[in-house]
């Protein structure tokens, strides 16, 4: 029971994989598995940043739009210098993340509203700057970032880094503290505003990394890229077992959540008989079931 409580998503992932192996011959092939990983690597990077925000008691709805902004920025800068494109894309998204954090902490606007406004404004800005056209990346300085094993390796490196930060740095510990109870954390002497701003900056920056990866993979910066990713990222974090109210969870759980949703999507594709709309209905139902099951086997917060 205790194992299930902490690893419910992992058990579900194993079960889904067993179903996949049993029913679909093409599931357990190098090609299919590496496809799953590569297709979900960008979303995984976004979900990593989301994990920090949610652990700190917030929510970030702007990440999908920031992926698009970063991709467009990278594509526009890349012709000058590939590295400039990479750094520029990440930097722009990070700055927008910092603005989210400042509005939430200093102007005291709710995270939901702040990041919803950022979603709308950032997406619109990406469309306006590009005149609704995709920006092709001339030359091939960035292409490697989105191809082969590079995205997967990058994903794993970033998750290892995220784990280290959460587990072993003061900032990471303070993210948990703020998500547990921001007022108490402040009374205990933490500078909570800085920590909250840090989580949104990180979320923005990682959305920027994902945006650059996506642009490199597509060979273009698309202003309409990553629409709805914020919801997929939140779903992955929550399915993985991080509390939506903050204070408890971790990055590996999120990775399991990303893979779980990714494998299910893959199985639907392999099956090929379920219409896309019913796939979405099933995915939504599945999300609900996993979260309900998890919240029921979770111990009460205050056992007597």
């Amino acid at each position: 029971m205790k194992f299930l409580r902490h690893n419910g998503a992992f058990v579900a992932l194993v079960v889904v994989c067993i179903v996949g192996v049993a029913r679909y011959e093409s599931f357990l092939t190098v090609e299919n598995l590496s496809n799953i990983l590569r297709q979900n690597s960008m979303l995984g990077v976004v979900a990593l940043g989301m994990t920090f925000v949610i652990l700190g008691g917030g929510i970030d709805l702007s990440v999908g739009a920031l992926v698009a902004v970063a991709g467009v920025a990278a594509a526009m800068l890349a012709p000058h210098n590939a590295l400039l494109g990479v750094l520029g894309g990440i930097l722009v998204a990070s700055l927008l993340g910092v603005i989210n954090g400042l509005l939430i902490t200093k102007a005291r606007i709710q995270p939901f509203i702040t990041t919803l406004a950022m979603l709308i404004a950032a997406r619109a800005a990406a469309l306006a700057v590009t005149h609704e056209q995709s920006v092709n990346i001339s030359g091939d300085g960035l292409g490697w970032l989105g191809r082969g094993i590079a995205p997967v390796v990058l994903l794993l490196i970033l998750y290892a880094g995220g784990w280290t930060v959460l587990r072993h740095t003061r900032f990471g510990r303070y993210v948990y503290a703020v998500g547990n109870d921001e007022d108490v954390a402040r009374l205990m002497g933490l500078r909570t505003d800085r920590i909250v701003i840090g989580t949104y900056a990180l979320s923005g920056g990682l959305a920027g990394v994902a945006g650059v990866m996506l642009a490199a993979r597509l060979g273009a910066g698309l202003p309409v890229a990553a629409t709805g990713w914020e919801l997929d990222a939140i779903a992955s974090v929550v399915v993985g077992g991080t509390l939506l109210t903050g204070g408890e969870g971790g990055v590996w759980r999120t990775l399991v959540g990303v893979l779980l949703l990714g494998v299910i999507f893959n199985l639907f594709n392999l099956d090929g008989t379920i219409s896309p709309w019913w796939q979405w209905v099933l995915r939504g139902s599945f999300l609900l079931v996993v979260v309900v099951v998890q919240s029921h086997i979770r111990p009460a917060t205050l056992p007597s």
Binding site: Y176, A177, V184, G247
Partner: peptide, 13 residues
């Protein structure tokens, strides 16, 4: 902080 360990609460900050 209820979700953190006793040691973390003692040394937070």
């Amino acid at each position: 902080l209820g979700m953190r360990t006793v040691a973390e609460n003692l040394f937070l900050g």
